[in-house]
């Protein structure tokens, strides 16, 4: 089984970090993985996306052009990449920041008010992780325990307190209906 995942938004939203968590979860399960960032010279605010391939086979092209799973964190990426999703694919989008609706019937689109949920739960900047939680509950790709391991691996000691908050964000996303 191969999953081609595209995460997209603007710089500063944690696009690359969310992709890295998925990549680490796959690493713990012994999968073949590639993680490829694409961004401009801006520190934040520029267009940013991240291709993650997870497979049992060696990975050829690491650039995801027709994702099985799309995580869209803002309007421009939702509009740009929605048409590229494979039929039967799944989309996870932050409806707090996206006005457009999904106009495709051959895919499953989950609109989650992630930014609003993050603000309501004192989890500022946690929208990326909330959407990741929704992705995990709809795909069953990885367990919350594996995500916690990935978080521990990717959080420096000085930021260790963020692990519990991020796990709370995962749970919020998983529980959102």
């Amino acid at each position: 089984m191969t999953y081609e995942i595209l995460l997209a938004g603007f710089g500063g939203q944690g696009v690359l970090f969310a992709g890295k968590l998925l990549a680490y979860c796959a690493l713990f399960e012994g999968k073949e993985i590639s993680w490829l960032p694409s961004y401009g010279p801006e520190m934040r605010g520029g267009k940013c996306n991240c291709s993650v391939c997870i497979s049992d086979e060696p990975i050829g092209s690491p650039k995801v052009l027709e994702p099985d799973l799309l995580v869209a964190l803002n309007g421009p990426s939702f509009e740009a990449f929605l048409p590229t999703v494979k039929p039967g694919g799944k989309v996870f989008a932050d409806s707090s920041l996206i006005d457009a609706a999904c106009d495709r019937t051959d895919i499953d689109c989950y609109m989650v008010p992630a930014t609003q949920m993050a603000d309501d739960n004192n989890l500022q900047k946690g929208a990326n992780i909330i959407l990741l939680g929704k992705l995990l509950s709809e795909t069953g790709l990885f367990s919350p325990e594996t995500v916690r391991k990935a978080l521990e691996k990717n959080t420096p000691a000085s930021r260790a307190h963020t692990i519990d908050n991020n796990m709370r964000a995962i749970q919020l996303g998983m529980d959102y209906q």
Partner: peptide, 9 residues
């Protein structure tokens, strides 16, 4: 740039 920026196991 692709090989340099890409993460793999």
């Amino acid at each position: 740039g692709l090989l340099g920026q890409m993460m793999e196991p």
